[in-house]
Every structure is written in structure tokens, then in C-alpha cells.
Design a protein around this nucleic acid. Structure first.
Lengths: 114, 114
DNA sequence: CAGTATCCTATCGGATACTG
DNA sequence: CAGTATCCGATAGGATACTG
């Protein structure tokens, strides 16, 4: 039990939430859930993500110890990303949210408002 | 079980994830978790949120059927926000994420990098 | 293959002032 | 009390071109 609180503006918990509570972070972590992926495999798997955002998101997660980058000694060399142990602890929460989105998308009112 | 998939760019699941996977949405839904709140109570509870973002987030959640707005017949009249049934189904996922942030904030490497 | 660099637009989001 | 309106700087994020 922690004394951190996401309701407090300057709390580390809020900063941490800021870090992971965005679409790309959620999808990337969710995507890495089934094991390590190469950069290009992630790109293929995650529809609509640009190189820029994929790299940016991966770097951010890497800096936060959620994802580990590993250069492969294959030819032609590739790069592999995998969740760290910390990243795996986030996989549960993120999966729950992603699955909620999949299961309730039909209940969300499309913005037909005009 | 749904055939929607957050990995697909144009899937309703992705749109839905976009809608709820941001800090303010998470904190507002989490904040409404313990029952209805007035506008000003939410403002007080959620550190660092501006009127603009609170209103904007509430409107967005309202349009999506996650939150309900109710004008109170009190004097001086107030406005109350509460989760809809759909919103309550989101409360679980969102709480799990918020609590993860509170419990793992210390494990996230602050960006001391320079 | 796995990026980086640059450009450019759209949205985020705080501050401030005003309204019923 | 619960907003709306306006302004403005900072970031998000796509497109394209280039690199080791």
C-alpha cells in the first residue's frame, strides 16, 4: 500500500499515470504482452502508428524501465523489444483496459452530434 | 467476446481506447467512482485540472454515455455528475490502472538523463 | 532493418476574463 | 456555482526524406 495519490497534481503517481495513460503506450505494452517483438513486427502489428510515434513511445517506455531494447546479433541485424519485469506488471492493467475498449465499443455513442 | 481489435487503426475499439486512455479521463472516471460529485467538488478533488479541461473531459465522457450530467434543484443550483452504468463498467479497468500508478511510481526511472 | 531529421498542422492545455 | 470565450505557447503526431 502506497501513500501516493493520482488525485494530487505533483504526486509521482500522477506523473506515472501520465506516462502510461495514453493510447500508444497502452497499445505498445499490450502488443509486447505476448513476448518480444522486433521493431518492424510491432509496426505491422499496431495499425496506424507512425515510425515516429512508435520510436518515441518505445524510448519513453525504455527510459521508464518498462521496456528493454536489445540489439540482435543476427544478419541482417535487428532490434528486439520486450517488457521488463516492471513492464509485465503493467500488462495486466493495460490488458484489462484494452479488452474493455473492445467489448464496449458498441455501447459508446458515436459523436453523431451536429 | 468481441471481434473488435485495438490493434486495428480504424476499429471502433481503437476509437474507444483513444477516448478513455488519457490521464484526465482516467482521473475523472476514477474520481466519480465513489459516487456523484458536483462540478466544484471534482475540481477540488482532482489536483491540477483546469476548468477548461474538466469541462472538456466531462463533455466528452457525457457524449460517450459514460457520464451523466444532472442539474440540481437546490439553491443556489448546482450540477452533479455521475457515472452511467456504462461508466461504472469502466471504473474497474481505470481503478486498476490508477492503483498500478500509485504502487509502481517508485520503480519508474525519473528522467535524470542528461 | 531500424531508425533520425525536418516540416507543418492540429490539438492540448493553462491563464484570464466574462456570463446567467 | 458552473460554466463559456479568447488568447497563446507547448506538445502531439503525420508526411516525407535521409542514414548506418
Amino acid at each position: 500500500m502506497s501513500d501516493y495519490d493520482v488525485f494530487l497534481a505533483d504526486c509521482p503517481a500522477r506523473t506515472t499515470l501520465d506516462l502510461v495513460a495514453d493510447t500508444w503506450s497502452v497499445v505498445v505494452v499490450f502488443g509486447l504482452g505476448r513476448g518480444p517483438h522486433r521493431y518492424s513486427d510491432l509496426r505491422d502489428r499496431i495499425g496506424g502508428i507512425s515510425k515516429k510515434m512508435l520510436t518515441q513511445t518505445l524510448r519513453k517506455l525504455e527510459r521508464s524501465n518498462l521496456v528493454e531494447r536489445r540489439v540482435l546479433a543476427t544478419a541482417p541485424a535487428g532490434v528486439e523489444y520486450r517488457l521488463t519485469r516492471l513492464g509485465q506488471s503493467l500488462l495486466g492493467p493495460v490488458s484489462v483496459l484494452a479488452r474493455w475498449a473492445e467489448e464496449h465499443a458498441d455501447d459508446i455513442a458515436g459523436d453523431d452530434g451536429s
